[in-house]
């Protein structure tokens, strides 16, 4: 078995306002070997009829993942580093519960393969001390993987936030998004 070298001080920071919709991350994501060369990252227009705003979404790796809780097959697990892994391929029954329950809209159902797949933060790379593929290619640094000190130095007017409110539910995550200074939580609605 390979030796795991996961750098706990490294973290993922997302700033959707920096996304320019170039799809470079999608291409890079398909290089991640844990995805089987399927791109798992989402890039989409927020409201194409009104604006050119695009958004990028990786798995936020929730502290108490809704996807894992609603999985009837116990196929999704969170490891000791807080990484929520893609569905265990031998267990997943392709029911799509996780796809519909994830508050961030992350998991994908591969219809023909009867399998849920999602971003697992390039575990083949991060478990070997490397950066996730998407973060290495993002030209606008909407996706950044590094230490908290690095991001604070680069974005002096922003602060990483990893708490979200969806309806009455508070969701805390391993991945942070960059918010204006003084913000502690993003209330989605």
């Amino acid at each position: 078995m390979p030796v795991t070298d996961y750098h706990q001080e490294m973290a993922f920071f997302v700033d959707m306002q920096r996304c320019i919709g170039c799809h470079a991350c999608e291409m890079a994501c398909a290089e991640c070997e844990t995805n089987g060369q399927e791109s798992m990252i989402h890039v989409n227009y927020v409201n194409r009829a009104e604006s050119v705003q695009t958004t990028v979404q990786v798995c936020m790796h929730c502290e108490d993942p809704a996807c894992a809780n609603v999985c009837p097959a116990d196929a999704i697990h969170k490891d000791e580093f807080g990484v929520v892994h893609s569905a265990n391929t031998s267990r997943c029954i392709g029911c799509s519960n996780c796809v519909l329950a994830c508050p961030f809209g992350v998991p994908k159902k591969m219809e023909e393969a009867e399998l849920m797949m999602k971003c697992n933060m390039c575990y083949d790379r991060t478990s070997a001390g490397k950066k996730p593929m998407c973060a290495t290619v993002c030209p606008s640094q909407a996706l950044f993987y590094g230490t908290r000190e690095e991001i604070e130095r680069m974005r002096p007017d922003s602060v990483p936030v990893n708490s979200f409110k969806f309806g009455k539910e508070e969701v805390n995550t391993k991945v942070s998004i960059m918010m204006p200074k003084g913000t502690h939580q993003l209330i989605v609605g």
Partner: peptide, 28 residues
């Protein structure tokens, strides 16, 4: 989990793309 909103709807009424857009709009 309680994804219900004050107006009686739920965050789960949104499709995955709708959820991603809702997050991006809130961030914006």
């Amino acid at each position: 989990f309680n994804f219900g909103k004050e107006d009686g709807t739920s965050h789960l009424d949104l499709s995955p793309e709708g959820k991603r857009s809702a997050l991006a709009r809130a961030h914006f």
